[in-house]
């Protein structure tokens, strides 16, 4: 489902001294089936933005179109129609999703969302088991309490809880925060797999290496506005430090090598492997 933001404005706690303008006219489009990254410094409105996609927040003005669904300004949220249908299509994994666990067993917790969306007990459990195997948790976890698991396992259970209802669009906020490097890598390859199976992925992250490696498009947010939508490689060619963004490690390394005289094809670099390939290619294929 394509997603369009059109002149979206949003203010937290309007008409109080605590009022804060979080979004100040956001315009961009997310194509169907893309792996879309949203980057920007802390407090630039990324988290507020993604809550508009599944109508947890409604804009003060402007509109967000998700397929057929239109999220537009309303007085009371219940005036919006078809919100349950929308939420079934758009799954949101928040930052530190492990706090949303509450059931006695892992499988029940994962089956919670499918059941809310109208599946029967048995079907919901089937979906839960499929989702759990997707996040590499085997049968031994099914009957355990989610509160006895380790931090990384809890997070995978929570993510399975969203995958279980098979959303067509998956919105993920900082999935790798607080994970060890191996865990982070596994997490990202999981989302890559889900994307390859046809799900649109919208990823909020601070890790530019992830953006470079996985995303096909990246939106840069600054002070409540979308500064632009780029191809990741194009973005990192520019000077992005003014948005408090840093070059990805591999890209920075390649730039430095190029400065020191090695003629490198920077545009093909996505991760460590392609960096190595580029270095070998610049040497004429022989070391």
């Amino acid at each position: 489902m394509p997603i369009t933001f059109k002149d979206v404005f949003f203010t937290h706690d309007p008409n109080t001294p605590l009022a804060a303008n979080a979004l100040k006219g956001v315009n961009f489009e997310i194509e169907d089936g893309s792996f879309f990254a949203i980057v920007g410094k802390t407090g630039c409105g990324k988290s507020t933005l993604i809550q508009h996609i599944n109508a947890l927040l409604t804009p003060m003005s402007g509109e967000i179109r998700v397929g057929e669904f239109v999220n537009h300004p309303v007085k009371k949220k219940r005036q919006l129609k078809k919100v349950p249908e929308l939420r079934r299509e758009v799954g949101v994994v928040f930052q530190f999703p492990e706090y949303q666990l509450f059931e006695e067993t892992v499988e029940k917790d994962v089956a919670f969302a499918p059941k809310n969306f109208g599946l029967k007990e048995k079907e919901a459990l089937d979906e839960a088991h499929k989702a759990l195997s997707l996040v590499d948790l085997d049968e031994s976890f099914y009957k355990r309490s989610p509160f006895d698991l380790s931090g990384g396992e809890k997070r995978r259970v929570a993510i399975a809880g969203v995958l279980a209802f098979k959303p067509k669009v998956l919105v993920i906020d900082e999935p790798t925060a607080g994970l060890d490097p191996v865990g982070a890598e596994e997490m990202m390859s999981l989302f890559q797999r889900i994307h390859d199976e046809g799900t649109t992925i919208i990823l909020v992250t601070h890790d530019m290496d992830i953006v470079l490696k996985h995303a096909d498009k990246v939106a840069v947010m600054d002070d409540g506005k979308c500064v632009g939508v780029y191809d990741p490689k194009e973005l990192f060619k520019e000077d992005i430090s003014s948005y408090s963004l840093d070059d990805p490690l591999v890209y920075g390394f390649a730039k430095r090598v190029k400065q020191k005289g090695l003629d490198l094809d920077v545009s093909s670099i996505k991760d460590v492997d392609s960096l190595a390939d580029a270095i070998i290619a610049s040497k004429g294929g022989i070391l």
Binding site: L56, P97, N116
Partner: peptide, 19 residues
Amino acid sequence: DDTKRIMKAQESRGVDFSH
């Protein structure tokens, strides 16, 4: 704030707190 956060997460999982 925690309540807000958790409500949002559960609403995303299809919970309806008002109906």
